[in-house]
């Protein structure tokens, strides 16, 4: 009897595939939100497992802030070509222009908040009723509270006090017109689980996840890539360091970590011994306040 037991990665995989297929079964017009980071690349890999040899019952959607790492965009296009699925790209730049939005100011002016406008417009444009995302509950404490099927109102808002009970493995995706559901198949995965899975499944990743030389400026203990999107001041110290990215977001708000890890194996040993959390080490945008993520989610963020 004891031989019929799933390893933890198999159990997580099976849970995620089940969630993907619930989306396919319950919704008319789902989409997979693809950022080019390791979590959404893992989502694509899981979607292949859930639906091949059939096609995905949804397109990939990328909300392009215009501040992406070029390596991530290159990787995105190659992946889409390889799996032969549909990709929809909508640009924050266009939303800023047509809606005359005001951009953030300052040294690391970020479009992180503005991308919510583009996301909500895109959801409306295509009539998406479910958006699959790669958020994990171990990332952040507001995310730790969110359901796997998270209902958002017509403004995309998350209302933590009105979450539906989510019992056993049964998901209730029933919504009113105009609402949508955010679905998080890898809710129960940790950063380490993702990397162990990437190793096991030999999933390819953008090169910036691995150690490379990069021109960075050191700012309050974080290393930010030199790019056209940040303001360089005369007093800034710029140096070429051996770094890698632990998360891949915008160039303006994602910090690199000093690292020699050049293989998935190296990265796994690095994560096991690290003393700082993934978002704490790399995300400049979470530092604003204790409830930064909760507030963004209430406004329609992923």
């Amino acid at each position: 009897m004891s031989t019929y037991r799933l390893d933890y990665l198999d159990e997580l995989e099976s849970e995620a595939i089940h969630i993907f297929r619930e989306v396919a079964g319950q919704f008319e017009k789902p989409a997979l939100l693809f950022s080019g980071g390791k979590d959404s690349i893992t989502l694509v890999h899981l979607a292949l497992k859930a639906f091949r040899p059939g096609k995905f019952p949804f397109p990939l959607v990328h909300i392009d802030t215009g501040h992406n790492f070029p390596e991530a965009l290159l990787f995105r296009d190659e992946l889409v070509k390889q799996i032969d699925e549909k990709l929809i790209v909508r640009c924050v730049e266009d939303t800023i222009r047509t809606k005359q939005l005001t951009e953030q100011k300052g040294k690391f002016a970020s479009r992180n908040q503005l991308q919510t406008y583009t996301l909500l417009d895109t959801i409306q444009e295509f009539g998406f009723d479910a958006c699959i995302g790669g958020a994990r509950r171990d990332e952040e404490k507001a995310r730790a509270k969110e359901r796997i099927f998270s209902v958002r109102d017509e403004f995309g808002q998350w209302e933590p006090k009105r979450q539906r009970p989510e019992l056993w493995n049964m998901y209730n995706g029933k919504i009113h017109k105009g609402e949508n559901v955010r679905v998080f198949p890898i809710s129960n995965w940790t950063e380490l689980d993702i990397w162990n899975y990437i190793r096991r499944e030999k999933i390819a990743l953008p090169s910036i996840y691995f150690s490379h030389d990069r021109e960075v400026l050191e700012y309050e203990g974080q290393y930010v890539a030199v790019s056209d999107f940040i303001r360089i001041d005369e007093t800034d110290v710029i140096a070429t360091r051996k770094v890698r990215y632990r998360t891949v977001g915008d160039m303006t708000c994602t910090a690199a970590v000093l690292s020699d890890a050049s293989t998935v194996e190296d990265i796994i040993s690095e994560i096991i011994t690290t003393k700082t959390s993934e978002r704490g080490e790399t995300r400049i945008d979470d530092r604003f306040s204790e409830a930064a993520m909760e507030d963004r989610k209430k406004n329609g963020y992923f």
Binding site: K145, A291, E294
Partner: peptide, 22 residues
């Protein structure tokens, strides 16, 4: 573990939070 603003303010747990360790 108290992840929501209202929970920290009131010092109580309102909704389920999921935590992970290995």
């Amino acid at each position: 573990t108290d992840g929501l603003r209202a929970e920290r303010e009131q010092g109580i747990t309102i909704d389920v939070a999921y935590k992970y360790f290995t």
